[in-house]
Simulated scan of single mutants.
Amino acid sequence: MTNLRALLVEGVFHWGYSVRLISESAAAQQYLVPPPSTLIGALAFSLNLLKDFPEFAEIRTGQQRARGGGHRSGVEEETELMSGAARLLNVVRWATFAFSDELSVSGRAFAVGYSDFIRCFRLIYQRGIRHRWEDYDMWYGIGAHGKVYACGAGFKILYLVDLGSAKERGIEKIDLLQASLSITRLGAKEGLVSIRGASFSDRLDLLEPSKAGHIVTEYYFPRELAEDYDGGQVCPLPRLSEELWKVRPSIPPALHEHEEFVIPGGRGSILQPGRILVTRVAPGKAFVVRATFGERVETILVPKAVISSD
């Protein structure tokens, strides 16, 4: 864990956010909280602008394929066209999210899921006979687009960053800090945010489940990491995988490729800051990470693979 660092980002939503359910069309429902892939994507978007990285990247798959004949014949490694966020696949080991009263404009954070009526382009779903100017009125329809209203609500994002892997990709520690301070949105482009601050913690305390005892966390985590807990609610979020960022995946991510997360605070579509008391961490599946930022300590639950692969 010598290269692993915690990066804490604090900010405020302008009006809220919208992260569309995977596999749904423009008239889609929303995730109640930004999933880990969205948090990584927000950081990657800023990093691409700061480092002048292209929007898409060719990522090596580790598989070999035969190259064309003639003097260029041979074997080469396959590459996959992905979103620029895939550059951070092994750099950001984990990302988690929490609402914060302290950072909120009014001193209290609330978020409410709802559906907003939008005008949807429907022509692509209609027969050719409708593709005439005389039928222009039939080209559009009304749809419900899922959003989360969180005007002025404060939030915290905690990234676990592998600085060694970052350096291999030409990314320095200061680059990640600058990129985190430059995050402008979470989810859809309308989900504007203002970042209040960002900082690294070089002090990480890693605890085995058997030694962790009872822990309290403000951040969401996969449900399978805790055998017994009190507080929060269960919400499905997409499983963090490179498939999410492939431009042309062989098997598109689907709704069944989700896992249940425990989200602190709130009930149903009404969210607010809260704490989860974990009385028993799942042995063999999780680690407890405590990151110290000055006088503050942030505690999170992370999958074992995040730490054991370091």
Score class of each variant (00 low, 15 high):
residue 2 T to E: 11
residue 4 L to V: 08
residue 8 L to K: 14
residue 9 V to Q: 08
residue 12 V to L: 15
residue 17 Y to I: 04
residue 18 S to P: 01
residue 24 E to I: 00
residue 25 S to P: 01
residue 27 A to P: 00
residue 35 P to K: 05
residue 36 P to Y: 05
residue 38 T to Q: 05
residue 41 G to T: 11
residue 42 A to L: 01
residue 43 L to C: 05
residue 43 L to S: 04
residue 47 L to H: 05
residue 51 K to W: 07
residue 52 D to E: 13
residue 54 P to T: 05
residue 56 F to R: 13
residue 58 E to F: 12
residue 58 E to C: 00
residue 61 T to H: 09
residue 62 G to Y: 07
residue 67 R to L: 15
residue 68 G to F: 07
residue 69 G to P: 06
residue 71 H to W: 12
residue 73 S to L: 10
residue 74 G to C: 13
residue 75 V to Q: 10
residue 77 E to Y: 14
residue 81 L to P: 11
residue 85 A to V: 14
residue 85 A to T: 15
residue 88 L to G: 03
residue 91 V to Y: 03
residue 91 V to D: 03
residue 100 S to R: 09
residue 103 L to A: 10
residue 105 V to K: 13
residue 107 G to R: 08
residue 110 F to W: 10
residue 117 F to L: 15
residue 117 F to I: 14
residue 118 I to D: 03
residue 118 I to S: 05
residue 127 R to S: 15
residue 130 R to M: 14
residue 131 H to M: 11
residue 132 R to V: 14
residue 133 W to G: 11
residue 133 W to L: 11
residue 134 E to Q: 12
residue 137 D to V: 04
residue 138 M to C: 02
residue 142 I to C: 03
residue 142 I to H: 11
residue 145 H to N: 09
residue 151 C to P: 11
residue 154 G to C: 04
residue 155 F to T: 02
residue 156 K to A: 03
residue 160 L to K: 06
residue 160 L to T: 06
residue 161 V to F: 13
residue 162 D to V: 11
residue 165 S to L: 05
residue 166 A to G: 12
residue 171 I to V: 14
residue 174 I to D: 15
residue 175 D to M: 09
residue 176 L to W: 01
residue 177 L to H: 06
residue 181 L to G: 01
residue 182 S to H: 13
residue 185 R to Y: 06
residue 187 G to A: 04
residue 187 G to E: 05
residue 188 A to F: 04
residue 190 E to T: 06
residue 191 G to F: 12
residue 192 L to P: 01
residue 193 V to R: 01
residue 196 R to G: 02
residue 199 S to W: 02
residue 199 S to Y: 03
residue 205 D to P: 00
residue 208 E to M: 09
residue 209 P to R: 06
residue 212 A to E: 08
residue 215 I to Q: 02
residue 215 I to P: 03
residue 218 E to G: 04
residue 220 Y to H: 15
residue 221 F to Y: 15
residue 221 F to I: 12
residue 223 R to Q: 14
residue 229 Y to Q: 00
residue 231 G to C: 08
residue 235 C to S: 10
residue 236 P to Q: 11
residue 241 S to M: 01
residue 243 E to G: 03
residue 250 S to P: 04
residue 256 H to A: 06
residue 257 E to Q: 15
residue 259 E to I: 13
residue 264 P to R: 12
residue 264 P to E: 10
residue 265 G to A: 06
residue 270 I to V: 14
residue 270 I to G: 00
residue 271 L to I: 04
residue 271 L to R: 06
residue 272 Q to A: 13
residue 272 Q to T: 07
residue 275 R to M: 02
residue 276 I to A: 05
residue 276 I to M: 05
residue 277 L to M: 04
residue 277 L to F: 01
residue 278 V to D: 08
residue 279 T to W: 04
residue 280 R to K: 15
residue 281 V to M: 00
residue 281 V to C: 00
residue 283 P to V: 12
residue 287 F to C: 01
residue 290 R to I: 07
residue 293 F to R: 06
residue 295 E to Q: 12
residue 296 R to P: 00
residue 298 E to L: 08
residue 305 A to G: 03
residue 308 S to Y: 04
